[in-house]
Nucleic acid binder design. Structure first.
Lengths: 368, 368
DNA sequence: AAGAAAGCCGAAATCGTTTTCTAGAAGAAA
DNA sequence: TTTCTTCTAGAAAACGATTTCGGCTTTCTT
C-alpha cells in the first residue's frame, strides 16, 4: 500500500486555539456551534452585517468588518451549509453515478471529475448502482431532491436519462450508450477508431489471422470496437473470419477461455486483439499455460491502458482510453451548465491512441 | 473496459408521465419544482398534513393520506433536501477523505464504505487531498459546516484529527497513523502480523537470506511491516542483515531499483519480502530483466493483495489486507456514532492473512 | 345524555442563512 | 444653512421543510 508522509504539524497551536474557543464559548454561553445570530450578538452588530462580511460585500465599514472577522476567527465560526443551500438554491454538491466501484477502469474518470470539482470549490457525491435498475431508480428519486447542483452519469440507462431530463437539473452523460437521447450533453471516446487502429497495427506487422475477443456485449463501446476491427480488416482487403470473433464479457476469465478455444482451432490466429486489457490478461494466462510466448508466438493488443498493463510481462501494447480527460471534460461541461451557460459542443468525443509496448511483433511465418 | 448491459426500459411510459406532469403543472400554475405548500394547496390540505404523509406519521386519515399521495405522485414531487437538512439538523451525507484517488489500493475501502452507506440510505461525499496539507486545511474548514453528518478520514494527519475533535462531528479514522490520538475511533489492519507471517512463510520454506523493501517510510503501517519482518527473523534465530533492508517508497520503481541493488550484493538474498504489491511488481520486472526466474531463483512475497497480483506471472504470494472490510467496518462504526450510540470497541484492528500463490518455493541451495 | 378519550388537522414557530429595502448619518454641493 | 448623494447598518421577508401544540370532531364510557 502506498503510505505516504502526511504533514504533521505541531499540535500545540491547535490545542491552544481549542482552549481559547472553549473559554470564549463559555463566556458567552454558547452551547454547540455558533450561528450567525450569536456571532452578531457578540460582535454587537446585526445578522445581515455578519452575513455581508462573510460574503465579502462592500457595504460594511472597515472597523466593523475587522471586528466581525475577529469574532468569527475567535469562535471558529463556520456557516451552516444547509441553511445556505436552502436560501441560495445551490448546494455546492455534484452527483456522480457509477455502475460500480470495484472496477479500476473508473478510477481515473473519478479522479478527473474530482480534480475539476475541487478547483471549482464543489464537492463530489458518489453513488454506485451495481448495475441494479432498482438502485438506479432509487438514486434517481433521491437525486432530484435538489441535494446537488448537477449530475454526472456514467453508462446511463435510457430510463435514467428520461428521469434526468424531467428533473430539470443540469447533467452530463459519460460513455453514453447512444440511442434515443442523441442530444443530451455527453462525453465519449473514439472506440471505433481505437478498434481500427489496434487492428491496423497488427495488420501492418504482417498478421493476417487476427482474432477479436468481446463480441457479445451489446454496449455501445463494445459494438464500436468490433466494428473498428472489422473495418480495419476490410480496409486491408482481408476477409472477416467469424471463427476468430470470440464471445467475451470483458473479464479476465472470458479472455482466458476465448484464447483456449482459439488455440484449439485447426488454424489458430497469429495475433489477438483482446477487446480490453482485462481480457488481454486472460489471454496472457492462457498462452502462458500453453507454453506460447508473447509476442514471438502470439501478438496481443489490449484496450483501455489500465495501469497494470505496464507491468505485465511483456508490457502490453494497448489502446489508450483517455479516462482522466473523460472525467475532466464531463465535469467542466457540467460546471458550465450549472452556471447557466450554453454548451457550444454538447457532445464531445475524446480521441484514443495506440500505446506501443512489447506484446506485438511480426508473425513467425506469414500466412499464405 | 467493462461495459455491461444496463436495463433498457421502454421509454414510452416515461414520455407519457412526463407529459402528464407538464399538463398538471400548467393547470395549477406551477413553474419549477413543486413545494410542499403547492402540493398542499392542490390537495386542499395544510402544509403539515403533507409533511406528515411524507414522513409516514400516524395522525392522517386514510382518505386524506391517499389523496395527498396521489397528488405527490402525479406531480412527481420530491422534497427539497436542503430545507429538510436545515430543519432536522441531519443532511444524510457522510464525508470520506482520501489522500488520493489514482491509487487502486483505496478502491475496495471506498467500495466498502459505499455499500454500508447505501444500505443505510446515506450518501457519500468524496474528497481527495492529494497529500497537500493546504487542501486538507481547506477541507477541514468545509467539512465542519454541517454539510455532512459524519466524517471518515483515511490516513489522517495530526492536525486533521485535532480539527475534527474540535468540530464535534462524529468521525472514524481509517489507517490511523497512531500517535497522540490514541482514543479516537479508528480501524486499522494487523500490519505487524502481516510482516511477521510473510517473513515466517519464507523462513519455513528454508530461506535464510530474506530481503525487505520499504524501510524508509515513516508511516505507521510501514513501520509495523518491517518490525514484523525483523521479529520473524529474530524468532527464527536468524540475524538481522541491514544490507538486506532496502529503502523504498512503496512504488513500482522503488521495488525495481531496490532489487537491482540487491542483485549486485556479493551474497544476494534468496527471497524478497517486497513491502507491498506494487514494489513486488518492480521486483518482478528487475528479476525478469536480469533473467532470474520466480520462484526458482528468487521467492517473492507482496503485501496488500491488489487485484492484479492474481494475474502476475507467476501469481504473487502476498498478504491480504482486508480493505473492503476496513471500509465497511469504519462506515458501520460511523453510523453508530451518528445515531448517538456508544462504541464498545472504538479501536478496531482487522486481521491480515497470507495468500499463497506461486511466487515462493524453497531456495535452490540452502545457505550455510 | 354528559363527559372523557381518541383521532385528525392546521396555525404558527423554527432551523440559519441571504436578500431586499429602508432609515439614518455623514459628507458634498449649492 | 439646505439639499442631495453616498455610506453603513439593520428590519423583515424570504428559502422549504418539520414540529409543537391546540382545537375541532368523532367515538367511547358511565
Amino acid at each position: 500500500m502506498t503510505v505516504q508522509w502526511l504533514c504533521y504539524n505541531r499540535s500545540e497551536t491547535f490545542r491552544g486555539e481549542q482552549a481559547q474557543h472553549k473559554s470564549m464559548a463559555r463566556r458567552h454561553n454558547i452551547d454547540g456551534r455558533p450561528t450567525i445570530a450569536q456571532i452578531a450578538r457578540i460582535a454587537g452588530v446585526s445578522v445581515p452585517t455578519v452575513s455581508k462580511v462573510l460574503n465579502g460585500r462592500a457595504d460594511v465599514s472597515l472597523p466593523t468588518r475587522e471586528k466581525v472577522e475577529r469574532i468569527i476567527e475567535e469562535y471558529g465560526f463556520v456557516r451552516n451549509r444547509a441553511a445556505r443551500a436552502l436560501r441560495k438554491g445551490k448546494t455546492g454538491l455534484v452527483d456522480l453515478l457509477l455502475p460500480r466501484l470495484d472496477d479500476e477502469y473508473y478510477l481515473p474518470i473519478l479522479e478527473g471529475v474530482a480534480q475539476v470539482l475541487r478547483d471549482a470549490g464543489l464537492r463530489l457525491v458518489l453513488t454506485a448502482t451495481d448495475y441494479k435498475s432498482e438502485e438506479e431508480v432509487r438514486w434517481i428519486a433521491t437525486v432530484t431532491d435538489h441535494s446537488t447542483d448537477g449530475i454526472l452519469v456514467m453508462l446511463p440507462s435510457e430510463r435514467a436519462i428520461e428521469q434526468l431530463e424531467r428533473a430539470g437539473l443540469p447533467f452530463v452523460l459519460i460513455h453514453n450508450q447512444g440511442g434515443l437521447q442523441a442530444m443530451a450533453p455527453s462525453v465519449r471516446i473514439t472506440s471505433w477508431e481505437g478498434g481500427f487502429v489496434a487492428t491496423t497495427h497488427l495488420i501492418r506487422l504482417g498478421h493476417r489471422r487476427i482474432a477479436y475477443i468481446g463480441k457479445t456485449s451489446p454496449a455501445r463501446d463494445a459494438i464500436e470496437r468490433i466494428a473498428g476491427y472489422r473495418a480495419a480488416l476490410d480496409a486491408a482487403g482481408l476477409p472477416l473470419m467469424p471463427e476468430l470473433e470470440c464471445d467475451g464479457d470483458f473479464t479476465e476469465a472470458s479472455g482466458y477461455q476465448a484464447t483456449l478455444r482459439l488455440l484449439e482451432l485447426p488454424e489458430p490466429p497469429t495475433a489477438i486483439f483482446a477487446g480490453n486489457d482485462r481480457q488481454a490478461a486472460g489471454v496472457y494466462r492462457a498462452l502462458h499455460e500453453r507454453g506460447l510466448a508473447v509476442p514471438d508466438q502470439m501478438s496481443v493488443v489490449g484496450f483501455d491502458n489500465l495501469p497494470y498493463t505496464e507491468i505485465m510481462n511483456p508490457p502490453l501494447t494497448t489502446i489508450h482510453a483517455p479516462r482522466l480527460e473523460l472525467g475532466r471534460t464531463a465535469a467542466t461541461m457540467l460546471l458550465r451548465l450549472i452556471n447557466g451557460e450554453q454548451l457550444e459542443m454538447p457532445r464531445v468525443v475524446l480521441p484514443t491512441h495506440l500505446v506501443e509496448r512489447q506484446s506485438c511483433s511480426p508473425p513467425r511465418q506469414q500466412q499464405e
